[in-house]
């Protein structure tokens, strides 16, 4: 069985060759990984590096470019919407209701504590996300900054959006408008796609 670092090296090989589609790359990574594992178990003297060189040599630039062109041709942005299955929509709405209902039902004086609690949950959630990211890119080949503008906005969103949401509830003491619900769902989709 290959180590996560070795799998990552294979993934980088295809990433370097321009394989931007995740499902396509995943399939090729599995193919090469298994071929390497078989080589290593059949010939004990062969190292991972040697088997890696030999197996990746089979993937010519032309082959990969053809596969990529084909994937581009078949790609439809509409497919992204398949993320919103009924089950996911249901779960998202349930999470939303679980967050909003206590705020509506709770005593007005206690609302500020509810907001603090939610902000703490949001921050904790994103800290775990940060740790996960750091663990995934332990030895980045390219410098991947977790503080890049794109990522930073990703970390701040769960704090800013619920913050605005609850400030609004505090001011008006009403159910948040539909647009805020949509922003919340889009934000989750954006982070998990």
């Amino acid at each position: 069985m290959l180590t996560p670092e070795q799998i990552q090296k294979i993934d980088w090989f295809f990433e370097d060759k321009g394989m931007e589609f995740y499902d396509l790359r995943t399939e090729l990574v599995d193919h090469v990984s298994e071929a390497i594992e078989n080589q290593m178990s059949a010939h004990y003297h062969i190292s991972f590096e040697q088997a890696f060189k030999e197996e990746t040599r089979k993937f010519t630039r032309k082959d990969l470019a053809l596969q990529l062109a084909e994937a581009h041709e078949k790609y439809s942005p509409l497919k992204e919407w398949r993320y919103f299955t009924l089950k996911r929509i249901g779960i998202l709405l349930l999470i939303f209701l679980l967050l909003v209902l206590p705020v509506i039902l709770v005593n007005k004086e206690l609302l500020i504590y509810m907001e603090i609690l939610y902000l703490l949950i949001g921050t904790g959630w994103y800290l775990s996300y940060l740790l996960q990211f750091k663990r995934k890119y332990k030895n980045p080949r390219k410098k991947v900054s977790v503080y890049s503008p794109e990522r930073l906005s990703g970390y701040l969103f769960p704090i800013i959006i619920p913050g605005f949401l609850f400030l609004n509830i505090l001011r008006q003491h009403t159910i948040p408008p539909v647009d805020q619900t949509i922003i919340f769902i889009v934000f989750i989709f954006w982070n998990y796609k």
Binding site: H31, K58, Q67
Partner: peptide
């Protein structure tokens, strides 16, 4: 069967 022949065919059949 080469990878270059197999995967495009599998993807076409899937589509």
């Amino acid at each position: 069967i080469t990878e270059g022949a197999l995967y495009p065919l599998l993807h076409r059949l899937e589509a």
